[in-house]
Design a protein around this nucleic acid. Sequence first.
DNA 1: ACTACAGGCGCG
DNA 2: AAAGCGCGCCTGTAGT
Length: 664
Amino acid sequence: MLPDFSRLKATLDFCAIDIETTPINEFNDIEKIWCISMATSEFTKTVHWKSGITKEELRYICRNVDTMKALGNHNLGTEIETISFMVHLLKGDTTFTPCCHGTFDVRHLGECTEVSYYIDTMLAAYVAFPPSVLGATGDEDALRFYSLAHLSSLGLCKAKLDYDGNFTRYSEKLREYNIQDAISCRELAEFVMPSLFADLHSFNAFVLDMKASQAVIMMESSGIKINQDALLDLTLKTHGEFNSTLDEMRKLVPCVANTQVKPKAVSEAYAKKHLVKNRRNNVHPLAELGKLVKVGESDDTGRWFVHEITEFDPNRDGHVIAYFRHTCDGWTPDVYSKKGNVVLDKNVVNKLAFEYPSAQLLQRYRILEKLLSTYLKPYQRTDKEGRIYPSFPMCATRTGRLASRKPNFQNVPRGDIRKLIVAAEKHKIVCVDLSQIELRILAYDMATMLPSHVASKDSMWIAFAKDADIHAENAKLTGKERKAVKVGIFLYIYGGTVNRMEKSLHMSKAEAKDFFDALEAKIPALPAIKRLMNKRAELEKTLRTVYGHKIVYPDLHRDDIPKWRIAKARRQYFNARIQGSQADIIKLCMWASYKLCLKYGASMLIQVHDELVFEVPEANAALFCDALLPVFNNTKLLPGLNTKGTPGIGNNWYEAKEDAENRE
DNA sequence: ACTACAGGCGCG
DNA sequence: AAAGCGCGCCTGTAGT
């Protein structure tokens, strides 16, 4: 039930396992298993079922494999030996270290037979060769980057076969593909693991990731329950507001000729038939819907270039420009992106909204549109239990954080949407977060890296040791407002400029400058740690997190790139120390919490970087919270790095979080 | 139909 | 001239 990763030892005797399956639906489960292959450096073993077997059937075979073998009462032929080998391999009875690529195979095999320990070659590659080492730029599909296919294309192991068939029935090709995958996986392990064995820090980091991946497997199999009744209510309500907001906007501006898009070329005759004169600001009455506005003509083809007049659509920037021109008198575009497009983001709209109700309508429209399209609509697609199954890829970030996909449960708005995320019958939602973890890490670095006279009295470190409100302390020190100090410090440590503070804190240039200077003067550890990290960045391009994850910024020492890219790499370097260490710490919490989940019959549902959400049987909820306390209030992790966290209980995520805040 | 990009925005 | 970091996903647009 609970893998024991302390059994991992320095060996190259790997046996890779790969399974081929048919997914049952989009909800993360499988319908049929076709092949299982295992590969060591000396032999391969493979077993297949021409009509496929279900997971339940495989579980039955695995549980009884030795009895069946002894009695001979089965129809598996000699392949019973192969399954028996697999069962003992995963149980840890052989001399081989089992390995798989990614969480998928071990997750399903783990439901069929005991897995005592193994290595995930995807995580091993990620820890040994961080993304930038492998040439990741950040633009690629992060999930695919550490796929076996891609790693083999980079030369880390022999080519993986490209299977062009489908996985819904058995074929000889499928079997060959399956065997080759296992071989590639084993080769990858042999290539990657020596780097980890040679470097204790990286090895520890890898073991931590293996542990966290057990929690990830639990999250991905649990799924998240959505309250469908509440979802329907909220969707209807939101939709109503959305429609009335849109109506009000269209009363102001019914139709628009969008001059921001490429004009359409039509025949002169057609154009003349539907042509109307352009109006000021490109705004038209409803009567002109579907008519054309001429913007040019081509002499050689006799075609005219026109814009079609369409109903006002706030999602189109060209329409919004016309809308503002028409309703905010005298407004013209003033902010432009580096690509030369008109910027119409929150900042711009907020500014107009002080004066013009039309901009307030757009504000509201955007909020409602976001809620509907990104959250409410996707949440309707659940399985028959009313659950959604996001994935939490572990190799998708440069800092070691997890990501969340399809849907992303790490960016759920803090309002009513969180009330939709509920516990199953007779269960409660429990959530807990690491309080101020980024600043605690910063304070730890200040205390351990800076000369004691800098890090002493005024540092945040002291405030944490006293368990004080860090932002209130800093507010006292600087004589500024608590909220502003909080935002300001985050901006400061990640390299934000006076310019940025001006915008984020709604200050004048002079006020922002004064604020920036006050931060530096009153909290000297702040500029000191920044200088120190910049110095380090100059000396080494590899950064280590507190637990030993390696993060690499090749840009730091290149002289053939523009200066701003080096400056950017420095900011990333500093951020990575904090964000990456935060990722380490939550992974430690995930492993400890995972063990508690097994003990209390709970499930881990979501991780949001510094927060975990669980679904716990009602009767155990309070006990589970008590058990979480020592996990999140840890003083032994590193001397001086104290964590703090208060769990909360509720019927939904919103309530649980509220409960946690009340208990603090 | 699918893909890629840009702008925008939700979270930590 | 670009100057907070880390993500994923929605829309529209433009290309195959």
